[in-house]
Design a protein around this nucleic acid. Structure first.
Lengths: 200, 200
DNA sequence: AAATGATTTAACCAAATGGTTAAATTTTGA
DNA sequence: TCAAAATTTAACCATTTGGTTAAATCATTT
């Protein structure tokens, strides 16, 4: 592992654990086992180092699920597939949601918001939604509110992970199991919401 | 408004906007239009001032909805009432969710997690759930996962508010309207999830 | 091997930070 | 009224912060 890689690994850890304001350049240097001046040699400033990390991490969190979703026929199946795939990522990187949320909530910083690659999923989502709506395959819900709901149901427990662990007294492993079980529960909710009522 | 109140008001603003690490005692003093030494005179330290603010704000976010919920008969109605009431608070204090989430995610800090008053709602929720489940009034879902889902659907948009505003190009007022509309949509989702399928 | 460029180190710096102190001012109560 | 207590101020402090610099070391190329 070369110096640059060591820095990135250490910076990831520290920024994710402590947030931008809480992170200390010295601590990043210590964890990377390099001189603090090296941080600036490779990345010029704290801000630029953070940006590098953020970009890399966002790529992990917003992967090419969109592409894969195309292979599913109906809207409901697409959404269920999204949940399934997204949870594999979330379970692997449970700290990512808070990292992203705390970054986009940083005062006066629309810069990072613009880096979120939402376009890819928007198209497929809405196109598929209206297609299935017209053919009566799904119930008439507000697509925007529905999307936010699916995201919220999915991501929320990862944002409250420390509280959940403490309040119901579980460790990381048990949390992981709980989230694994959650996948089917969420898919079920989605089906119940989207499946039209039988007017026989 | 006396000095202590001025400090609290200013501290609220700054801690909520900037987070604990980002907040500066000098900025709090400036906004309160008092000398920085006064902060320490009244609250000893940054940590203690923050604790004061957190406690006050948590009281606002976790109010006596629990009590009021008792007056609703069925589980479904209780949940819908909760959403309705909770949204009135969220719309009024849209920045609170991020404030609480970022506090409980602070490294090695179970202290604040323990301050979250969840007990009040837990009892009513589970008792009512199992009661209605037995009498066949609701579908058999996992009560824990369901609770997290309702919370997630409700709170999530307030955590992503800056991103939502930017991405779909709306201002605070429009966001508020969107959230007002969201109430009925969420209540609808809850009913669709909980209403048992008719096996005629 | 010598020169060149890339990498690393240690010492350093100015600014900002949370916090303190002692004196000055205002408020209170006997 | 006047002394004691509470409040406010300005100056100060030690430490930490992100960042710099110049010299030293290492790698590469001719």
């Amino acid at each position: 592992m070369n110096t640059e890689e060591k820095i990135i690994k250490a910076a990831e850890e520290v920024f994710i654990e402590q947030g931008y304001d809480g992170a200390r350049m010295q601590e990043i240097a210590d964890r990377a086992e390099i001189n603090k001046a090296m941080l600036h040699y490779y990345f010029r400033s704290k801000e630029m180092l953070f940006e590098k990390i953020f970009e890399e991490k966002v790529k992990v969190l917003f992967p090419t699920i969109g592409e894969q979703m195309k292979s599913y026929e109906g809207f409901t199946d697409k959404v269920c597939f999204f949940i399934e795939q997204y949870y594999q990522i979330l379970i692997k990187y449970p700290f990512m949601p808070f990292f992203v949320i705390s970054t986009i909530n940083r005062k006066d910083d629309k810069h990072f918001i613009k880096k979120l690659p939402f376009g890819f999923i928007k198209e497929i989502f809405f196109e598929s939604f209206f297609s299935d709506l017209q053919s009566g395959k799904i119930r008439e819900v507000n697509p925007f509110q529905f999307a936010v709901s699916v995201m919220g149901m999915s991501i929320f427990p990862f944002l409250t992970r420390p509280a959940m662990k403490e309040l119901i007294g579980i460790n990381d492993e048990q949390f992981q199991i709980l989230m694994q079980q959650r996948i089917d529960e969420l898919k079920n909710y989605v089906r119940l919401i989207l499946t039209p009522t039988n007017h026989a």
